[in-house]
Amino acid sequence: MTATTSTAPNRWAVPVLGFGTFAVGTCEFVLAGLLPQLSSTLLVSIGTAGQVVTAFALTCALLAPALATATASWPRRRVLLLATGVYLLGNVSTALAPTFPLVIAAQIVAAAGAGLFVPTAAVTASALVPAEQRGRAIAVVTTGFTAATAMGAPLGTALGAIFGWRVTMWFVAGLAVLGLLGLVRLVPAEVATPAAEGLRERLAPLADRRVLVVLATTLVAFTAVYLPYTYIGAVFGPATGGSGVRLAVLLFLLGVIGTVGNYVAGVLADRFGSSRVVAFALVWLVAALLVLPLTTGGFGWAMAEIALYGIAAFAITTPQQHRLITLSPESAPVLVSLNAAILYLAIALSGIVGAVGIAWAGPQLLGPIAAALAATALLLSTRIR
C-alpha cells in the first residue's frame, strides 16, 4: 500500500534531502583526512586507523539493502528521521569515544544510519515532484555526495588539523542536527512512494551475467580509486609535511576536479557511449596511479597529481550507472542501489588492501597497487557485451 501526500510539498523539501546526503557524505569522506590524527592520538598504526573507513563502508554495503527492505512500508519521513537520528548518535558517540575500538563501534552505528538515509532520500525526492522532474530531484540528492567531497571533507579535515579530530566529529554531528530540523520542518509527513519490494526482488537482476560483470568492474575500479584516497594523508605526507591544512587543500582540489570530471564524463557518455568513456577513464587512471609515487615529494607536484587522478577517478561513476540502467531500464532503481552497495564495498576493500600494502612496503606502493587493480577493471569492462 502507498501513502498519499495531503498537501503540496515545500519547494525546499528536495534541497533539504540533498543537504542530508551532504551531511552523511561528509562523515564518510572526512574520515580519510583524519587518519593521521586518529593514528597519533589513539596510538594505532595508520593501517589500523584506516579500518574505520572499512567499517563504515562495509556496514553501509551490507546493511543498506536489508534496512531499506525492512522499513519499506514505513512513512518516508519516519524512515529519514530514524536514519538521521541513528547517524547522529553514531557521530556523537565517536566524538566521545576514548579508544579506537569504540571509535570503530560508533562509526558502525553512524554507517547504519547513513546506509538507510541515502536510498530513502533518493526515493523520497523522486516522489515529491512531478514525473518529468524526477531526474533532477534525484540529481539534487546525489549532488550532496559531490558537495561532501568538494567542501565537507576539506572543511572537516581543516577543523581537525586546527582543533583536533573530535571537533570534526562534532561538526559532522552538527550537520546532522541541521538536517534533522530540516526534515521535520520541510518534508511532508506522508509521501506517496512505489509499492515496497522484497529483498528477493531487489537482488533479482543479479541473475543477469552482464549486470554481474558491470558490478564487478565497479568493485575493482573503485577499490583502485579509493585506495590512494583512503590513505591520502599517508601517501602525500612528504608533500604536506604533516600539515592538515595542506591536506585539506588537496581534498578540496580533488573534490572540485572530480565534480568537473563527473560532469564531463556524463556529457561524453551521451555522445560516445558509456563503455568507451569508462575504458578511457580507466586507462587514464592507470597512468595517473603509476606516476603517483613520483609526485609526493613536493606540494606543487602533489596538486598536479591530484588533478590528474581526480578527473579519471570521478569520470567512472556516471557512465557505470548509465551502463547498468541501459541493461535493464525497468530495473533501474534496483540496479542503481546495487551499484551503490558495491561502491561502499569497494571503499571497504580499499581500507583493507591499503593497510596490507602499507605494512608490506609503505604508502608509496599504493599507487602501483591501485594501478594494477584499475588495469584489471579495464579487462573486466571489455567483457561486457
Score class of each variant (00 low, 15 high):
L62D: 09
A372M: 15
A139R: 07
A122I: 14
F222H: 08
T149W: 05
A173N: 02
A139Y: 04
Q107P: 01
A269R: 01
V264G: 10
Y344E: 11
A70K: 06
L378V: 05
T69M: 01
G152D: 07
L308A: 15
L63V: 09
T94K: 06
N262Y: 00
M303G: 11
T326D: 10
V191D: 08
M151Q: 01
V103P: 04
Y309P: 11
L285W: 06
A371P: 14
Y87G: 03
A106V: 03
A57W: 03
A3D: 07
R134T: 10
G298N: 06
Q133V: 08
T240V: 14
V214I: 15
P65F: 10
A147Y: 04
I347T: 10
V214P: 00
P65Q: 02
D208S: 04
E28Q: 07
E28W: 02
I342Q: 02
P36H: 11
A173H: 05
T99L: 12
A374D: 11
P188G: 10
G164Y: 06
A13V: 01
L67T: 02
S45C: 07
Q320G: 04
P333V: 01
A374G: 15
L324M: 04
T54C: 08
D270K: 04
R323V: 01
A377L: 12
S328V: 08
A341S: 15
V336R: 03
A61P: 03
V167E: 05
V277S: 12
A207F: 01
F19D: 02
V213R: 14
